[in-house]
Amino acid sequence: MPMKTARLADEATETATLTAETKAALDVRSVQKTYEGQGRTVEAIRELTFEVGPGQLVCIVGPSGAGKTTLLRCMAGLLELSGGEVVLDGRPVTGPPDGMAVVFQEYGRSLFPWMTVRQNIELPLKEKGLGKAARREAVDAALAAVGLLESADAHPWQLSGGMQQRVAIARAVAYEPSVLLMDEPFAAVDAQTRAELEDLVRSLWKRLGVTVIFVTHDIDEAVYLGERVLVLSNRPTVLLEDVAVDLPPERDQLSTRSAPRFGELRGHVYELVQAAKLGQRPGGDVEEP
């Protein structure tokens, strides 16, 4: 396979030059994405640059249609960039990279319905080359972490929406990624389940030390979960503001959400998103949407 070795060699030289200048887990550099098709071009992302440090939990919010999912798919290597580059652990992302897991919004459709919960979680581990015993252990640990051990032999469609999304999270966790991307994972579950799942993400993130990038349209959720909130403008997308969330690391649904600082941050991000909807760009200029 001459092509593969060529690519690997290419990556190796890139790695050598890159590791010297960056320690970020994920580095998004001047990423641009323009969709072209049927005589119509849509500029989705104009220019995005940000870094996510190892072990950070960063939330990305923006008005609907801000290209959040586009950005996530670019970072996941599922979509080709029109310009710039995404660098994961010092290696440029050219396809779905090693060491990254994605949890999609459509939980029901990201699980293989013909497999049991256990088989769903196991499949990526098989690909990783884990032995049978190691796989079993990893699946059990992941299921225990999301509280679904007793559903291991059920099929995904036999579970509720919240449980299905927990299976998807367990699959990602068992894969032991260095970066976990989550694309509006709780947009389609009810409010109570959502609060539970938010706390689950926080606790898994703390325990595993994984870098998490969490895309959401929910401002409260972004402030509650994140250490930073990246607010995107409307299309064509640029970064409006990088908001540091200086809330204490121990968070819980009641006290954190009623803390005055939470209210201030929430209010600030809310104003930013409202401004973004009206076409606010960084630097104060307003562009007609």
Binding site: R73, A76, G77, L78, G95, P96, D98, M100, A101, V102, F104, E106, R109, S110, F112, W114, M115, L123, P124, K126, E127, Y175
Partner: peptide
Amino acid sequence: LEPVLIDTARSYRLSLWRRMLYVVLPGAS
């Protein structure tokens, strides 16, 4: 085939034959 399943298979870097055996064939069955 459900595009989200294809994306899932891609993002977990499933090899061609695993994609065939565990995703494409059962999905089309």
